[in-house]
Amino acid sequence: MADTADRVVGGLRTDGPTVLAAYGALVRSRVAAQASYRTSFVVDIAAQVLIGLVEFAEVYVVFTQVSDLGGFSFAEVSLIFGLATAAFGLADLVVGHVDRLPFYVRTGQLDAFLLRPLSALGQLVTSDFSLRRLGRVAFSLLVLVIALAAVDINWTPARVALLLSTPIAGAIIFSAVFVATSAVGFWLVDGTEFANAFTYGGNYLSSFPFTVFGSIVRRTFTFVIPVAFVAYLPALALLGRDDRMGMPAWLSWSAGPVALVAWLVALLVWRTGLRHYTGTGS
């Protein structure tokens, strides 16, 4: 779509910066704006580490009572927890603010986005960049490293590749969930809270082995909101275990394709939402 503009306008603009450079400039400006408030930035990072700590406290408390949960040991659940919260933290860092869409609509900021020659979603994503959430990612990675040392994994090149790619694929899946559920905000003024049920709820649920959940919850969060692919299923493959509930083993290696499909669905939902917005106005 953007390319038609170059054709219409002619020579002057095609030699300018690329679309990527435009987004790059937007992201850099956000980072610079945050770094300028150094004191509160440090406090915010500490608060994010604390969020991770409190989340992990639940796992810790549970294992002071029992030695296995849904058939998994403390170290194994910690591995799942580390993978899930690292992926969620990364997604939250990059796109976490999209659930504030109703705020952008109310203040007219979305209209301002629509008046610029870039995609509205692209501008929304690059309009904020919560570097403080690095604190949470760092804590998750710490848990992950300790858990990896504690569990018994039969390392193969395929498993190493799986371990390295899982947080990335997981972050892509979570960001698709963020975008798709945030688009609810095009219809509902209080869309943020609805979106949180799936984003924050997805983070909570994916930090535990899926064997603890009932079949409706398990299927919903595997096939509709695909957060099972973020941590639980890849962890099975790393540990060399089968799903007690009978999920085929190849699903454990499918986070990449699932992430792709999740984003296609998310973009479709977003486009439908944006059409609804420009259709009804406000």
Binding site: M1, A2, T4, A5, V8, V9, R13, S29, A33, T107, G108, Q109, D111, A112, L114, L115, R116, P117, L118, S119
Partner: peptide, 20 residues
């Protein structure tokens, strides 16, 4: 053709800002 149009028009809404 919203993005193509955005390159050829300039808009000022008195109540909404294009600035950061």
């Amino acid at each position: 053709q919203r993005t193509a149009l955005a390159r050829q028009i300039g808009v000022v809404f008195g109540q909404r800002s294009q600035l950061w």
